[in-house]
């Protein structure tokens, strides 16, 4: 579930968890690891992705959020 943390880039600074508008990310201070603790509470706003100083975050959009695309029916 979103967001996706690139572990090679993440330095566990915790900034994304600090600014998440819905508190769905947490920094596990003991394990020095960033976790997506409440993935189903993600708003997919992308604040973490935008603000990550390491560029370590990408978003995945779950299928519960599928957008509905349809070509205009020119025959009608």
């Amino acid at each position: 579930m979103p967001p996706i943390i690139n572990r090679k880039k993440c330095i566990a600074c915790g900034y994304c968890a600090e600014i998440c508008p819905v508190d769905c990310l947490k920094l596990d201070k003991k394990a020095k690891k960033l976790i997506v603790r409440y993935p189903d509470e993600c708003w997919h706003c992308g604040a973490c992705k935008t603000d990550c100083p390491q560029g370590a975050i990408t978003m995945r959009y779950p299928l519960s959020h599928m957008m509905l695309a349809f070509p205009p029916d020119k025959e009608m």
């Binding site: 992308g46 978003m59 959009y61 959020h65 957008m67 509905l68 695309a69 349809f70 070509p71 205009p72």
Partner: peptide, 17 residues
Amino acid sequence: FDYFDQRGIDIRKDMIE
């Protein structure tokens, strides 16, 4: 738009409900 890019949606071809 991140969603459009990831899923290959072209809004010049498809309408979005």
